[in-house]
Design a protein around this nucleic acid. Structure first.
Lengths: 208, 208
DNA sequence: CACGATAATGGCACCGGGTGCCGAATGGAA
DNA sequence: TTCCATTCGGCACCCGGTGCCATTATCGTG
């Protein structure tokens, strides 16, 4: 699974050899700029490569696909969330822990909030990215399921942890969709609400 | 959105013109057979077209993409589920109605069960299909959200109905994944269990 | 300074999915 | 037969993604 290129500008021992002509961060910046002006589908990989002054072939050594550019360093974020969950006291009910982790994991400082919102708007509205995102969501769910399994005394592949992973993902996506529709309510509030509904089993709303 | 070709062998008035040289059903049959022997990724659209004795170009007039072949007539199934929900008595709590609909909607007679299971195994394991499925799932969620919204006195785009749609989808997929892992437990039972957990808010399992 | 090991680059050919275009084939109706 | 509607399918093309391989840049060492 090892990416040959800078995982994220870590010290990353370099003994010798030609140095990279750009970086994942730089490519992400340029690509998002192009997406914003020209649109995602209308921007070809060649365009991004040209903007960065590299060859098309080289682009694919920084990102495995055009879709992945939008996700930045998702794996690192997942690691952070895993750590957050592991650091949760056992006294905290596990659904509360998950809710807290998701809220914390999706809290961005004002400086980066706008660009994050734009990235998510792409992911949740551009069909190609919507489709691709499924594969990333699977990793996210795995983190949740893993934690739930530990708390439930089960294995990560067992039924209940998987259901929880899927349901949690659904709640999170719904919150994001709402936030994109109207940023009036803070994302954190929406996530919190969605997870509380989940934990309450959607009870107490019926209009019959 | 009208498909020019047979929606599904409805009477479908035909005035004149050359008659289709094959059908969606026939293509689906042939394609699934190829997928089963050679694998999904290893089967090119040209292979399917050749097997059906039509041109590659013509294939894309029957199905908009290779991915869609696996989904058969999903839209019709969705209509059935929508009807099921609409026919639910108001006395039935809405989460029970949704659970009932999903179970009923995913009940297949033994003759078609095996092929359905195979189709779902493709959808849930082949990366290209996993990704593509997101777009189909959106339609499914919409049906659920629409019903929930009506029951909750809200609009289909409102937050709570969307959360419910996403959570329900998650539960359903988790049940399917479990069923594919081990068909020992009937799909209906798994779906029922997943939805009951959802409605109970995953309570009563914590091992702390 | 020169050399060799090392690593990134980028061109090229190729594959496969998907589309626009357009002429050819087919079959019913006047 | 003629006309019209409809399907067919070849062709050229776009784009994302990959394997291959020679080229180029950099660092450490002698």
């Amino acid at each position: 699974m090892g990416r040959p290129l800078a995982e994220t500008s870590l010290p990353d021992v370099r003994r010798s050899g030609r140095k990279p002509s750009t970086s994942r961060e730089e490519l992400e910046r340029l690509a998002l700029e192009l997406f914003a002006t020209r649109g995602f589908d209308e921007t070809a990989v060649d365009d991004i490569a040209a903007a960065a002054g590299i060859g098309r072939r080289t682009f694919f050594r920084y990102y495995p696909s055009k879709n992945d550019v939008v996700w930045g360093d998702f794996d690192r974020e997942l690691d952070r969330m895993r750590d957050w969950l592991n650091a949760c006291p056992d006294a905290l009910p596990f659904m509360d822990a998950i809710r807290g982790a998701v809220v914390a994991f999706n809290t961005y400082d004002p400086a980066t909030l706008a660009s994050h919102r734009y990235r998510m708007s792409l992911i949740l509205t551009v069909p190609a990215l919507q489709a691709h995102s499924t594969l990333r969501y699977a990793e996210w769910r795995a983190v949740i399921a893993e934690f739930a399994a530990r708390r439930l005394g089960q294995r990560p592949g067992d039924f209940l942890p998987c259901v929880i992973g899927h349901a949690a993902l659904g709640a999170a996506i719904a919150a994001y969709e709402q936030w994109l529709l109207d940023a009036h309510t803070p994302l954190g509030t929406l996530l919190d609400t969605a997870f509380r509904e989940l934990t309450a089993g959607f009870s107490g709303h019926d209009q019959r």
